[in-house]
Simulated scan of single mutants.
Amino acid sequence: MLAGYRTPSGRVLDKVIHHLDDHCTAFIRLSPFATLATASVDGWPDVSPRGGDPGFVRVLDGSRLAMPDRSGNNRIDSLRNLSGNPRAALMFFVPGIDETLRVYGTATPIPADALGVDFTEFGRQPLSVLVIEVERAYFQCSKAVMRSGLWDPERRVERSVFPPFSQVLRDHCRDDTIPDEATLRTGLALEL
């Protein structure tokens, strides 16, 4: 163990299960947001935000999840990583609930229509679906979310304290042709 850290309690270790129980399933069905963590063959990590309507990630059974891979910036970092290293981790969030759910396993990209499940959202089908074979799942205690005040409306940051995303992109890309915020938000201007 690292200096200064105590050994985890038996309860902390015992909460890890190797399937999705009723509580995991219910939490996933309530979740509109998750992060997907992958790593390349040479170990470079990537964390990607994923979101949709509550339950956008489908529980297929007690050992499998299906996550739609929606069109985005087309970097496909996660898919590229999974092609060489199928290990993946998901962290599910539910607004208003301080605990999070962590799920670990292996992910396989498949065609969107291969499962016979309709993943249409916002009028569009995903480009592919990740099927995650669950190896471990457990709920994370609420301390980090409580410390952050993530769901506390009084701690919400006013959008005006940070530059518009269009300005951030113009500066990062050194590209004055990037359209204004209103055009970017339509999603039609360019993929970022």
Rank of each mutant, 00 (worst) to 15 (best):
A112H: 14
S148D: 07
Q125L: 10
G105E: 10
D46G: 13
T25K: 02
Y104H: 12
T100P: 04
F162S: 14
P68C: 11
G116H: 05
L13P: 03
H23D: 15
P8V: 01
V131R: 08
P109Y: 01
G149Q: 03
R185Q: 15
F56E: 06
S78V: 05
L127V: 10
D42L: 11
I110E: 11
A107M: 06
L90E: 02
G62W: 03
S142F: 11
R155P: 03
T186A: 06
F27S: 04
S78F: 06
R147P: 08
G4P: 08
M1F: 10
D42I: 07
W44Q: 14
F122W: 11
V161C: 09
L60N: 00
E135A: 04
Y138I: 02
R147W: 07
R80V: 15
A39M: 12
R75F: 12
F165E: 13
Q125M: 08
S148F: 07
V134L: 03
N85A: 00
S48T: 13
V145E: 07
D175S: 10
F93G: 08
T35R: 00
G51H: 12
N81I: 09
L190H: 10
P109L: 01
F162G: 10
V12S: 15
A37N: 12
L130R: 02
Q167F: 01
P86H: 05
A144P: 05
R29P: 02
A189M: 05
P49K: 09
W151H: 08
D21Q: 02
A144T: 14
L20R: 09
S9I: 02
F165A: 12
P153L: 09
P179E: 02
V134N: 00
P163G: 04
